[in-house]
């Protein structure tokens, strides 16, 4: 049942992706449905699935890398749909929805419901808060990442003076710049908060968790890169291309820390 649900959600996201793509290619928005509505439908299905998953697991589906991954995908979808609605600009969806789809499919493939967390972690609400806050931070960074990617694509087309599809469909460089910067600002706040909660919890369970770990290194690196992004903008007047490149870099590190480190390299910070 739960497997049927998770693939149904994936199918809904895929449908929304296809709609975003067709709108992007033809610029015809006069259909019976808007892409955002399809996206919202998929997110609603996703919420249902998450509730069911939480019920099966007996707690919020943020424990375990792959349960967290699908929750992250959902949070991301919600954040994006709110943004789309507020900014009245749907061109980003073309890149963001496939990204959500990939996260969700990854979660579908590797989700293991039988694996349990150490009971000492399960007793703490702080742990769940820690994870959710970090997931929100990741969503904000992901938005920033995609906005930066669009920035670079559009800047390239303008530089080459060959107005192509991106040039015609996308809003302005200034729009992506602002969006990317906001993503970084919000993401940085949540990342700092999330790490603080993590450290607090680590101190409480000191004997087990406060060991040196690759995950900590990766997170610190991510934090430093995004802090640099903020600092560069505020102090050195970085804008446009440079800021976009750093945002992309930061997100690369983040992906590395989230998926690769968590799944294979990390010894201690592992949901075991």
């Amino acid at each position: 049942m739960i497997h049927l649900e998770q693939w149904l959600v994936a199918a809904a996201y895929a449908l929304a992706c296809a709609h975003y793509l067709s709108v992007f290619r033809t610029a015809k928005t006069h259909g019976p449905l808007r892409s955002g509505q399809l996206g919202a439908l998929a997110a609603a299905l996703h919420l249902g699935y998450l509730c069911h998953l939480g019920f099966v697991m007996g707690r919020l589906p943020v424990t375990g890398v792959f349960a967290a991954l699908t929750t992250c995908a959902w949070l991301f979808a919600v954040v994006y749909l709110i943004l789309e609605w507020r900014l009245r600009e749907a061109s980003l969806g073309l890149f963001i929805l496939p990204f959500i789809l990939i996260l969700h499919v990854l979660s579908n493939l590797f989700l293991d419901l039988d694996r349990q967390l150490p009971p000492v972690l399960l007793a703490e609400v702080v742990f769940e808060i820690h994870v959710i806050i970090l997931l929100l931070a990741y969503s904000a960074f992901a938005i920033s990442f995609i906005a930066s990617l669009f920035y670079l694509l559009l800047a390239r087309e303008i530089h080459q003076k060959s107005p192509g599809l991106f040039y015609r469909r996308l809003p302005s460089l200034a729009f992506f710049d602002t969006l990317s910067n906001r993503g970084v600002n919000i993401g940085l706040v949540f990342l700092t908060l999330g790490v603080a909660f993590g450290v607090y919890e680590g101190f409480k369970l000191a004997e087990q968790f406060l060991q040196w770990d690759l995950k900590y290194l990766a997170v610190t690196l991510t934090w430093v890169i995004y802090a640099l992004h903020l600092l560069g903008r505020l102090a050195l007047g970085w804008q446009g291309r440079r800021a976009a490149v750093i945002s992309v870099l930061g997100f690369g590190t983040l992906l590395f820390s989230f998926i690769v480190v968590s799944a294979s390299l990390s010894q201690v910070h592992h949901f075991r």
Binding site: S172, L173, A174, F175
Partner: peptide
């Protein structure tokens, strides 16, 4: 148009 693509509004 080009200015709009760069500066937005």
């Amino acid at each position: 148009e080009i200015a709009g693509k760069i500066f937005g509004e």
